[in-house]
Design a binder for these strands. Structure first.
Lengths: 117, 117
DNA sequence: TACTATACATTGATTTCTTATGTATATTTG
DNA sequence: CAAATATACATAAGAAATCAATGTATAGTA
């Protein structure tokens, strides 16, 4: 089995959105930093989300109406929670399903012997 | 199960390189158009490679020494075959392994119940 | 004759992400 | 207690991958 500490950027590219939507679907609501830490823990450090990728995505999804935000004061800091909107739930379900389906197809291309077992 | 005729671009993004290297590894040598048709057939039309994505990638991989080319005259046309170089074989093996490993990880994030079964 | 398939290629625009930077508070450690 | 690390937000310049459109040319089919 292939071993690596962290996947190369080119491999991870394009998967940030489904990952974020899945986490929000599971957790109800999360803040940015929490998302980065959660993905890192879930994947044993193999996937590490950078802030420069995450925040623009969260803002974009919010602008599109997929996500809603709630700001809460934690002491002197303001923490910004994100959660799926009602329409966002459907967007998340669709994207996650499509991604899982696609991975099955891709697996069958990259590994024909076991892909459709 | 999720059904679709063709995956959205954002889903397929980032997977072209491993797909192309895998096909070349399997077939020995292929020309551009052959690659597009092969992927389409293999995936029942769900993944369709565009020429604007494929040719720049092939040229880049050739420039990097991953691929070698052989041009052959077919009647009046010149057909350009691509195949893995010796060092390209290792590049292909590594990338394909990493991609398969990554997909296992991603699956476990998107579908925790069945991902590590 | 016109349309579709084969087969190469480029180019401008878009999207996504990286790397670097900036600000500020909170906690831990030497 | 000072320094370093962790928490937590954010932006901005640039790189990279890809798309959509376009271009050229031959071959086959309706």
């Amino acid at each position: 089995m292939y071993i690596c500490l962290m996947y190369s950027k080119e491999i991870v590219k394009g998967t940030l959105k489904p990952i974020v939507l899945k986490l929000l679907k599971e957790h109800g609501r999360m803040y940015g930093y929490e998302i980065t830490q959660n993905v890192k823990a879930l994947t044993e450090g193999k996937i590490q989300i950078t802030e420069g990728a995450l925040y623009p995505l969260l803002h974009k999804l919010q602008a599109e109406g997929v996500l809603q935000t709630e700001s809460e004061k934690m002491g002197k800091r303001v923490r910004k929670y994100y959660k799926l909107s009602q329409s966002g739930e459907a967007v998340a379900d669709d994207l996650i399903s499509e991604m899982l389906d696609f991975m099955q197809t891709l697996k069958s291309v990259l590994n024909p012997d076991y892909g459709q077992a």
